[in-house]
Design a protein around this nucleic acid. Structure first.
Lengths: 335, 335
DNA sequence: AATAAAAATGGTTACGTATTCATTTTGTTG
DNA sequence: CAACAAAATGAATACGTAACCATTTTTATT
């Protein structure tokens, strides 16, 4: 590998000067710059970012631990995050984490000495939260948050769950199902709590036969679909904890020639881009503002990285219902 | 920052021994291992991957330069690629490249001394191809290929374009539009050529008023939609060069209350996962096999990285039509 | 022309690790 | 218990860069 020393020798200058030509050329005389640049060209020299990181103790890299992009929410956020970071001249280590490989992902970001971490995969109780804090690594969570209630950007999950249920309740549904995910994630936990609160406010008894938990995989949602359609008394409406779940369910119902919303109403949460598609038109709950959570989060992260801002970030965005075409009043005749 | 030297001091051993405990513990006596591990715990020591990379001259990192994931094709491939690499113990630098930032992305991967590169963003004539070859960095392109016809995994783009046109021709369409992208990408170039060949074979005169090029952005597709619907004599069918384009067009038509396929037929190419969704059911052309291109490519890349395989990879997958619900015979009465 | 100030360049070192080679310790065998 | 092999450990070095401090060269000022 050709190093800056090789360039120095070729150009007849010191390695220090080569370094200066690349980093602070204004401190080097024009002819010297030219000489060095010529040597760089001839030798096809490429600086080694690892070596630079070692001495500078910064990597110009951030780590993104995202949920899987078969969930369109993470498609929207990933794009926003990477583009913003790249504009700032940073590279992004992306990992789409599932639960099994979470620990490896955590280890990897610690060993690679990234300048900042942005993650959506944090659990309600997650030791990594304290690790990052202790090591003084700038970080922020988006979508989910840690129970410590610090360094996060989220939507108002409780109210989103509430609005989701309320929407169906106001349409006249009483047999309403909840399809959520594991409660060790703040999103599922709080959205569910909001859903339950709405039922209470409307004096609808909570029916445990209608409360479901999936692991958010396509398979588990298909299994659930089988179960729901085999029930004696089926729900007339489904509150899905995420658009991703809602979209999968939608696919199941439609594929089995059931009509949405005629046979069943479905409402999601997140208002992902895909839900707006003319062929989909998913009714959902999402942030009032256009900017997605990933974008808000990465901006905050860079505040912390570049401006050493350390006032704690706690952002919760208000939400509203986006009324589209997958919900309606229930059929009069309930089987 | 706490280093292995600090651990060594604390444990009362040499730095060499600390290194051995972490990398080849079988060469170290049990009590020594324990001593060192205890020191590591107490000091919260985390190895520095950059320093390791520097001395070992490998980074356990690959770079993925992907097309943007607002194109669902790259959602499917990105997931496959990252998961496979992570399983192999590699990290992935992901960049979703647009044309402006391509050069920065290239620079970044060269300076960071990644162990391999997988990219979909290469141009038909792209100097980076030779740069990577010259530097002896293992690399592979998927989706697109370079004109040198080496190190790629693709679908049979020419035949895909051909089948796409043939599908509409066989349905009886004669006023068929092509919506493609810039010709400096092998995919657009060859799919278009196939499309043209089909027209010839069916003795349909090529009509330049029906041949369109977009930059694949949502905006440019909306603009094109405006143009198409304002034509005196509108096409009855559209061959979109990618599913991504097809899906955007679909959105435009549906949103304006036009019926697909009753008012217009649309066929894509790529057979992305989303096209199978019950609410979408996009007719498209895609690989006969289930495995996506990203997965095939990353497997090949690891062959090159780990087994020093250097026989040149040239993979072209056969394609077929996936006949779904966005195409039909044209209406009898053509405006 | 003398002097001071500023600009340009170079020598040396540190970053944190793995590796190479040398040395010490332990274990084995007769 | 000697002799030797094997196992365990350590000292020194290299990786490629930026930064610090020292030195030389140039420019400006009188």
């Amino acid at each position: 590998m050709v190093s800056s020393k090789d360039v120095a020798k070729k150009a007849g200058v010191s390695q220090t000067t080569v370094s200066r030509v690349l980093n602070t050329p204004e401190l080097v005389k024009k002819p010297t710059v030219d000489k060095v640049m010529r040597a760089i060209e001839e030798l096809n020299y490429i600086p080694n970012a690892n070596a630079r990181s070692l001495v500078q103790n910064k990597t110009k890299t951030i780590a993104l631990l995202s949920g899987p992009i078969h969930n369109p929410f993470f498609v929207d956020t990933t794009t926003a995050i990477i583009n913003y970071a790249n504009e700032k001249g940073y590279r992004v280590h992306v990992q789409y984490v599932d639960d099994e490989r979470l620990q490896e992902a955590y280890t990897s970001i610690l060993e690679n000495k990234v300048d900042g971490v942005i993650l959506s995969c944090i659990f309600w109780e997650d030791p990594m939260f304290f690790k990052l804090k202790q090591l003084d690594i700038p970080f922020i969570t988006y979508n989910r948050k840690h129970k410590n209630n610090e360094f996060f950007v989220e939507i108002d999950n409780f109210y989103a769950g509430y609005l989701s249920a309320q929407h169906l309740l106001e349409l006249g549904h009483t047999a309403i199902s909840w399809v959520g995910g594991p409660q060790n994630r703040s999103t599922f936990k709080e959205r569910y709590a909001g859903f339950i609160k709405a039922l209470e406010d409307y004096n609808i008894a909570k029916n445990d036969d209608y409360i479901f938990t999936v692991d958010t995989s396509k398979q588990s949602i298909q299994d659930l679909f089988q179960h729901i359609t085999s029930l004696d008394k089926q729900p007339t409406g489904i509150c899905a904890a995420t658009d991703s779940i809602a979209l999968h369910l939608l696919d199941c119902f439609i594929t089995k020639n059931l009509k949405v919303p005629d046979d069943i109403s479905i409402i999601g949460i997140d208002n992902v881009d895909l839900s707006k598609h003319g062929m989909i038109q998913l009714t959902t709950v999402g942030s009032i503002l256009e900017e997605n959570l990933g974008f808000l989060a990465i901006k905050e992260l860079f505040e912390m990285i570049e401006n050493k801002k350390n006032s704690c970030v706690r952002i919760t965005k208000p939400v509203k219902v986006f009324n589209r075409r997958t919900t309606s009043a229930p059929k009069q005749t309930i089987k």
